[in-house]
Design a protein around this nucleic acid. Structure first.
Lengths: 219, 219
DNA sequence: CAATTATTCAAGAGATTTGTTGAATAAATT
DNA sequence: AATTTATTCAACAAATCTCTTGAATAATTG
């Protein structure tokens, strides 16, 4: 293989990977799958996609070794292929929200609207978690909590939040988290809790970022 | 801004960044610019692109905050916007060559063809570099060497390699490096030197990866 | 074994991306 | 001021990507 052929093969292959990521619907699917495996239906339920469309996007991700699947009964469960990919995806999103002015601005406006500025970082969380007066609240759907969650968190899915308000103390500080920086669940939780007089902040990132840390520190 | 609008804005923005990277010509340009700034002409000289096409790709990269430019006389010099982007790009390429089977295979076949298997890693290089019996050889064009190079390397551009053979000892081990894992210069250098009876290996990665390390260790 | 359910396949229209061509700018040199 | 040189712009056809629609598969249930 000549030098030019080799280069073309390598850059074409790299571009193919980037193309698989160059679509908003697929990025959203990746974020959903970073919460744990999901059936096609499960993906559809959490996005605006039609079933056929979600399936097609999942094929693209599968053909690029980004997701894997297993069959069980009627269902096909998809999940991210490995933690190396998850680490890469998180590097990309982290870069985007810190280095791309437009995205940083959109993110901050969203958090401002929901009184969720001044978020807690994972580092801070680590310090605070041993404080009995802090409540860590997982506001994702319960299936995602059950699959896995940050150690010490309690599950309060968004649809149960309003009716559970009386169970929480206004003395303790609440830290809400969800799927990650692009997820709006924790923002909404902060707004609702805050409007009801609770001391609440959101976690800067979400479950997948915490998980990644766990994996890294176990190496 | 409603939750769905926010998500769409974020994923669209992220996809826009990925789209900028989803093209082999632009990836090659990025790799060229990671050696140091280059004029449009300079980019053209190192790729298969026409001037107008290279300029267009550079506009795309500019509009996505991946490259910046400065004007000097006739020339417009482009360079990568910051080391955060370089770190991200290297994470992507590293992931691609280790996790995507097809790319890994292509890379290994190329190195096999050039007797450049068993490459030296940056870690190993660090250990060896104090050994007087090791010669670190930068085989990139001299302009790139002059812009910056790995500490202790000597410049032997590919076009001068054949006539310089007599200057090197067959006793010392030569380590050749170039622009990075996708670059063929070091492979060719290894093949030529090896066929002429020298003890030679290539560096697994290249100048930009070494540079990134320097930046990280200085933090 | 027919009906139901979850997923995939196939085809097509519309939008986007790509590289080419030739002309237009803009800065330096003659 | 005219010419040369490096770069950008604008327009276009070809290729690719995207989403929708409706049908096809494959596994389970009645």
């Amino acid at each position: 293989m000549k030098g030019r052929e080799f280069k073309d093969a390598m850059y074409d292959g790299l571009a193919k990977l980037m193309k698989a990521l160059a679509n908003p619907a697929r990025l959203e699917i990746i974020e959903m799958l970073s919460q744990g495996e999901k059936s096609v239906e499960g993906v559809v339920a959490a996005t605006n996609l039609t079933v056929a469309n979600a399936s097609q996007h999942l094929q693209v991700l599968k053909n690029n070794n980004i997701v894997k699947f297993r069959k069980e009964g009627h269902y096909v469960y998809y999940s991210l292929v490995n933690s190396e990919f998850l680490a890469l995806y998180q590097h990309i999103t982290k870069y985007a929200v810190t280095e791309i002015a437009e995205l940083e601005k959109t993110l901050n406006r969203q958090r401002e609207d929901n009184k969720a500025l001044n978020p807690v970082s994972l580092d801070e969380l680590e310090m605070m978690i041993h404080n009995k007066n802090v409540l860590l609240m997982d506001v994702r759907p319960s299936a995602e909590y059950e699959f896995d969650h940050i150690t010490g968190a309690v599950s309060v899915p968004m649809n149960e939040l309003l009716c559970c308000l009386k169970d929480f103390s206004k003395e303790q500080e609440i830290i809400a988290y969800c799927r990650g920086p692009f997820c709006v669940l924790a923002d909404e939780a902060v707004r609702i809790l805050s409007e009801n007089g609770f001391k609440v902040r959101r976690l800067d990132e979400g479950y997948p970022e915490w998980k990644m840390r766990q994996l890294e520190s176990n190496q």
